[in-house]
Design a protein around this nucleic acid. Sequence first.
DNA 1: GAATTAATTGAACGTTCGTTTTATTAATAG
DNA 2: CTATTAATAAAACGAACGTTCAATTAATTC
Lengths: 215, 215
Amino acid sequence: MARTTGSDGEKTEAAVREAAVSLIARLGYEAMSMRQLAAEVGVQAAALYRYFPTKEDLLFTLMREHMEGLLAAWSAARPAAADPVSRLAAYVENHIAFHIERRHATHVSNMELRSLSHERLTQVLKMRTAYEKELRTILRDGAEAGMFSIDDTGLTAMALIQMMTGVIVWFRPGERLSVAEVTASYLSMTMRLVGATISHGTARPYGRARDAVAL
Amino acid sequence: MARTTGSDGEKTEAAVREAAVSLIARLGYEAMSMRQLAAEVGVQAAALYRYFPTKEDLLFTLMREHMEGLLAAWSAARPAAADPVSRLAAYVENHIAFHIERRHATHVSNMELRSLSHERLTQVLKMRTAYEKELRTILRDGAEAGMFSIDDTGLTAMALIQMMTGVIVWFRPGERLSVAEVTASYLSMTMRLVGATISHGTARPYGRARDAVAL
DNA sequence: GAATTAATTGAACGTTCGTTTTATTAATAG
DNA sequence: CTATTAATAAAACGAACGTTCAATTAATTC
């Protein structure tokens, strides 16, 4: 046998990507074999090498495009010139929506970094750092404007990102909570965590956080 | 060659555990070979099978003992009968201290669950759930007492745990921040996130969170 | 000091891995 | 209709994998 009727390179490549994201998320990159992946696509293992020269190239492609997608989504969602509270809200909403929509790809991008070569790891981390820097900038602007109360900008940014990304670990669409409810909760937790205010001197708490007490 | 001078089963087994935690954390369980592990210990691969019947038995042992250690640490640290704020503070402090101290083992326990058999996965998850339930209980008690302002207890517990455990991803002892500083920051972020109060009606915010605003 | 037990080596087993090569067929271009 | 290109199958490669087994030596017991 050789070329099969109806075979199409573009469709096959798309099927390979999709199956790879799902399989790597479920089994892990090292545990997934090229033969397993091929079987999932309905093809022989050798056919995969027409689209990706090595297994690692496949992984890197998935990760790079995931990070590019995240940066692109934020570029599209970011408010042009708004106050820190609005910008932070936009960041949280975009982050949650993007990660819930791409649970599997996020899993791959977060868990399989160690299977990348040094050079490619650096590339992916550079994109990740650029994305995180956006949040740090918002937090710093808000702190300088007296609208946020934050101990340490870098630490707070990491804590927020870990908290938000963690949603993919436990959240399953169609269960107890809706995406909108989850987003609203995370938004409210975020605003309270950073001590968001409208203006310095006002005493109305953000969300349901009232009557807090000094440590 | 055969038995080497000075060889000791207990010491070898301890060395195997230690090397395995470090190697699995760095390379991943699937990527670490038994020959690599043996070389790290300074022994032939066959010798490992004197202590662990299979590679998966080794992984499971590491995970189970990590979770048992976490539950034991919390049992020792938990305040007998205290108010929700104190109990929450104790939970956060214990969690951060334990996870910073055992970064590698935590990495293994969180990232390699999929390499466990169904039965063993269930065992580990049962312990993890028991640990998380402790936090949910504290949050619920605090909310019922009117000392916390929380949308959803389960969601908040997951968000807090993800946030706190995430410390092992970026924190490195001996760098910019000390363990004490990090702990204090996480404690303050936690208290603000849950809207902690001393008593309903008081208007003094916890930590630096003042002048918050309604969503 | 002989017998026994504990700890380890070295070699090998069958399997699976990522990848390459070659042949073959489907689709397309002239 | 023929020539060319695109897409795949089938088979094979050497290497590495987890694991087993028999032999060997150190430590311990009697």
